[in-house]
Design a binder for these strands. Structure first.
Lengths: 218, 218
DNA sequence: GTAAAACCTTGATAATAATCAATGCGTTTT
DNA sequence: AAAACGCATTGATTATTATCAAGGTTTTAC
């Protein structure tokens, strides 16, 4: 698959014409990395704008006990890099980014990208929308962490993302929700005891959907 | 003071020429509000892009016990509104925004602003940078709340913002740091007992600056 | 099919900070 | 000068969740 067609596969670049895409292709490269490869360490500077073409990534921070603090997932067809100032040609990120799956990544020289596109008023909307999307993921995180206790977090996740919940291991869920596996287990137990959910072979089923929702809505 | 000169006083619009400023002036208005006026309720939609010209605002959320959760301050010379999608002509915000001081606010019709400026590739950089600035405030919040315990929060605030700390009431500090006044009092006591700070007449002085910093740096 | 490994649950205990309530202490107010 | 008020502090208790460790259970691998 050529780099041009990779670029065309991203919604981000859908407004570009053939010529613009080949200009972009000249300052870009496509790379494949394996699961668990760390793309970005927090505070480290970078000169490449990265897009996730295929695969899945996870943004996280490290606390003082070296525990990982999950921030959010980054899905394919979106910008991986964090932008801290549009005017600077250096990218520096707040979080670490690691691949959750084997992934395909488009890497674009950021200075050239600015020259060729942003400074010529191309892709501005797309760029801003990617930044907003990332900001909204942070907002969702803030909301969950500040407003919810462990039970509410689990209730909301079960209500909104039951499939994801059942697809992942308990350990991964507890990472996402910032609770310990032991706490998750106790919360599930409580919900089961209260006949709000049922668990068979580790698979959660919702029994009383209304009650589940009521736990996290005020 | 005319609306034109108000617009010119904002860095955001410094790239506009006379004609563009008067176009903007036609779809804008300047308003004065008193301290404690709530500009924005979360989730409520708005069609006006607001800029804080003078004064100070505070963004916050409400938890299920109706407690206020402080997010960040918004300082003068910056965008007050939250943008959730550049393409939409509706603004909807994640947080509540209240004035901390009597303030002067510029209100711009957002649809017209898009027509006249963003869609003509004007002010794009400025707009994106304002969004990034807000996102970075959220990042700082996430950092403090996820990585720090009560002692680390207080230590960092004393180290970096001693003047602010001493200027505000203990109650306001504890709002900002998301700890209870009683907890703040106990933390200060501990720092004093360990000869890291000294308190006379309620005013905190740093005695051992290195030790203070060491508390929150790993 | 069984052993090993990985994962989940449970129990006991500890840590952190919240809550509730009372007391203390300066500052206004009268 | 005494009373009232606003804050800050202190003590006692509680709530929530983490931590540590020991058993279970399921999955994986040979």
């Amino acid at each position: 698959m050529s780099i041009t067609s990779v670029i065309q596969s991203l919604d981000f670049f859908s407004s570009l014409n053939k010529e613009q895409i080949s200009t972009l292709a000249e300052v870009s490269s496509v790379n494949y990395y394996n699961k668990d490869y760390v793309l970005h360490y927090e505070k480290k500077e970078s000169y490449q704008l990265l897009f996730l073409i295929d695969g899945l990534a996870r943004a996280y921070k490290i606390d003082k006990y070296s525990n990982e603090i999950f921030l959010y997932y980054i899905y394919k067809n979106s910008l991986l890099s964090e932008v801290s100032n549009v005017r600077s040609d250096v990218l520096s990120s707040f979080s670490n980014i690691v691949l959750v799956e084997d992934s395909k990544i488009l890497s674009v020289n950021y200075a050239k990208f600015q020259d060729f596109f942003l400074n010529r008023n191309l892709l501005n909307t797309e760029f801003t929308n990617e930044i907003i999307a990332r900001s909204q993921q942070l907002q969702a995180l803030v909301y969950r962490e500040f407003i919810f206790d462990a039970v509410a977090k689990v209730a909301m996740t079960l209500y909104k993302d039951l499939n994801m919940f059942n697809a992942l291991k308990r350990h991964d869920i507890s990472l996402i929700l910032h609770i310990q596996p032991a706490t998750l287990s106790r919360v599930l137990n409580r919900l089961k005891r209260n006949k709000i959910i049922d668990i068979s072979h580790g698979e959660v089923q919702i029994v009383n959907s209304l009650a589940l929702k009521a736990i996290y809505e005020d």
